[in-house]
Design a protein around this nucleic acid. Structure first.
Lengths: 208, 208
DNA sequence: AAAAGTATTGAACAGTCGTTCAATCTCCAT
DNA sequence: ATGGAGATTGAACGACTGTTCAATACTTTT
């Protein structure tokens, strides 16, 4: 590695070009559209080079999965200069941001979820990232509302994730943006719900 | 068709056996696991018979997609002997019922969603079924709360669907069942929210 | 300049894929 | 029983798949 100097300006290193091509194909045509030859063509390299940087096809897909997962987890680690409650609010709102609600990203997420259902190997990576996301969200809630016990923070995070996943999915199905906005508002309501008093009646918020 | 008489008791007609096999493979191994040969093997028939009943592989998948869609739409057309509000309540609750939260069904749904993203043909079937589901849900709401204008019913249905889709998805990711129950309660809250007065301030329920 | 190391190429291999089709089997009306 | 129509089989075809590998190009070190 080191051809970054002059070469041709925008040309980034081939390994990540290959990964980008794979993710692009996956998001557009699903796993059936990701053949080593298609990836090579899309990346503008020879067929052999794909297997040079990524031993297997599954290694390539694993790399794509990991990159999306890192992106997801970064969502719950926002700008640390903000006040705790503003950090939480920003994290909740940016899941409907323009860069997240891209068809490319959502489609990619969907295909990776489907892959995780079909392959035990991907499933573990996916589950680990999901847990990290849940934990990050619960931490944000805990920081914003310090008097809330940790268990309750986890529950609120779980409830929020249900709605967020629903938003991502229905955004792909073409539901109107107004419903997305209302769902965002609902996640904020859950996050900032008043702390239940300790008199011992209803243990969790949101129950009927 | 007509071998149903004696044959060997449980042996149903081969065409639906083939379709069942395809759906089973799709739910377990994703689209990559659905080859005509695998379908034939799983159904216990010869390879040629699959192409005899279903011209294409896409025709076969289309049939599977349609069957799942019909099942989905039937969810919002529950027992007509119940009172309107009870019909709505039952529809909302059975999406967390034992037969719906099956891994097989949810996984199948996920893979079909992913397929719809990759193929324009499947996407249209999927979108049409989604609209029918949304319409059915809005009708249930409208029957239960007659004084609510139709537009508001549609909005509530959209909000509910977001949460339901989120539940289905996160159920696959292994979130705890308590969160699912809380989400069910939330859909009921949305459905049965008090009708906003017409004094003209906030046009929709649930807004901040 | 020679050597060594890495990056890159495309042909080749062994499978699997979806689809077609002639041949068989099963059944029912004649 | 004879014929015909539909159901069922599995071999065959060509296209495509993931992977390997010897050969080449490019960089860096000696």
């Amino acid at each position: 590695m080191g051809t970054s100097a002059v070469n041709s300006g925008e040309q980034m290193d081939r390994q990540t070009r290959i990964l980008d091509a794979a993710m692009d194909l996956l998001s557009r045509h699903g796993i059936s559209g990701v053949s080593m030859r298609a990836v090579a063509r899309e990346a503008g390299v020879a067929l052999g080079l794909v297997n040079y940087y990524y031993d297997d096809k599954t290694t390539l897909i694993r790399a794509a999965l990991r990159r999306v997962d890192e992106h997801d987890v970064a969502l719950v680690a926002p700008d640390p200069s903000l006040a705790p409650d503003e950090r939480l609010r920003q994290a909740l709102r940016q899941v409907a941001g323009a860069d997240l609600l891209t068809t490319r990203y959502l489609s990619l997420r969907l295909h990776l979820w489907a892959l995780a259902r079909a392959d035990e190997d991907y499933a573990q990576i996916n589950a680990a990232a999901f847990d990290r996301y849940l934990d990050g969200l619960a931490t944000l809630v805990s920081n914003a509302i310090p008097e809330l016990p940790w268990k309750a923070c986890r529950d609120r995070a779980a409830d929020i994730v249900v709605i967020q996943n629903g938003m991502w999915l229905t955004a792909l199905l073409g539901v109107d943006r107004a419903a997305t906005q209302r769902s965002i508002a609902r996640t904020e309501e859950i996050a900032f719900a008043p702390v239940p008093d300790d008199t011992g009646t209803s243990p969790e918020p949101g129950l009927a």
